[in-house]
Amino acid sequence: MSPLIFYPVAAAAVLSALAVVTARSPVRSAMALVATLVSLAACFAMLQAHLVAALQIIVYAGAVMVLFLFVIMLLNLQDDPPETGRAGLRFGAGGVAVVLAGGFAKVLWEHSAGDGAVLAESFGTTKVVARSLFSDYLVPFELTSVLLLVAVVGAVVLARRDDAPGQD
């Protein structure tokens, strides 16, 4: 892993995340979030998580973000007005977050310094992840399908208009 690749990617991730949080327009936030997700996909690739990186692009940047944009368009949201009157909240949150981020970064840095394990060439390929998923994690995997089904049904019930046709 070359610092030449890592630092630009990391910078892109942080800056786009900041843009998500600060952008006045929800559409801009969403576009910045896409950038964050793509940057993270690059990070996953660097960490030899090839399948996860591919899923990140397809599922998050693709499917989930389309859903976000769709809802933003559906609700026809305007730009938010400038944040006023909540200085206490903003500075409080910012201060606490800076302290916590610094502390966490320090602890994580100190506890994971040094070289990691030597990885096999096939680490993170579809085959290896699938083997784990369909052996050790088979039951949770199957339960995931139930979760998704429940989510789909729940989403339909929640989002449907009360006077929608076909209702009992």
Binding site: L89, G92, A93, V96, A97, V99, L100
Partner: peptide, 8 residues
């Protein structure tokens, strides 16, 4: 925010 302070 309370949540975050709790974490702190």
């Amino acid at each position: 925010l309370t949540f975050l302070i709790g974490l702190l």
